[in-house]
């Protein structure tokens, strides 16, 4: 499964985007809208780790793995983002983006709302030494 190791520095976000785009193409994704959604969701998740979650990280990097699942009905891209910090209440954040006031939009959690808006499914699991966020997108 293709893997990318990123420093915990927002300067690396453009490199992450390049990895997502190149790997999505290699996995057979043609639709630019699907690729944009994947880049957006991964960017938001990695930004959270690099900014809000940075202090608790026990390693100096995060990992991104990307693969695909195919059956007769569906073709799905799966992206797994692993970090080594404190767990984050990802699933609790279900923000109704459009209904938020300006003040609420400026608060943290805004990015998580975007991730959930553009992905078909998300899973967040916390382990003693790491957290894994899995993102699923049909293509």
């Amino acid at each position: 499964m293709p893997q990318f190791k990123s420093n915990l520095d927002t300067q690396w976000l453009s490199k992450i985007a390049d990895f997502i785009e190149e790997t999505a193409h290699a996995l057979g994704v043609q639709d630019p809208n699907v690729i944009y959604d994947l880049k957006l969701a991964v960017d938001e998740a990695c930004t959270n780790i690099m900014t809000h979650g940075k202090k608790s990280q026990k390693k100096d990097h995060l990992l991104i793995q990307m693969g695909r699942q195919m059956n007769k009905q569906d073709r799905i891209i799966e992206v797994a983002i692993t970090d080594f910090g404190n767990a984050f209440p990802f699933q609790k954040m279900t923000l109704p983006l459009k209904d938020l006031s300006i003040e609420e939009k400026l608060k943290n959690g805004f990015g998580v709302g975007l991730i959930k808006s553009v992905m078909e499914k998300t899973e967040y699991k916390s382990f003693p030494d790491k957290n894994i966020l899995r993102l699923y997108k049909y293509f």
């Binding site: 880049k39 957006l40 960017d43 930004t47 939009k105 400026l106 805004f110």
Partner: peptide, 16 residues
């Protein structure tokens, strides 16, 4: 060619 929530926040702050 790309904008994330970080960019949206900047414009929201400017708008305010």
């Amino acid at each position: 060619n790309y904008i994330s929530s970080s960019g949206l926040r900047v414009f929201l702050g400017a708008h305010k």
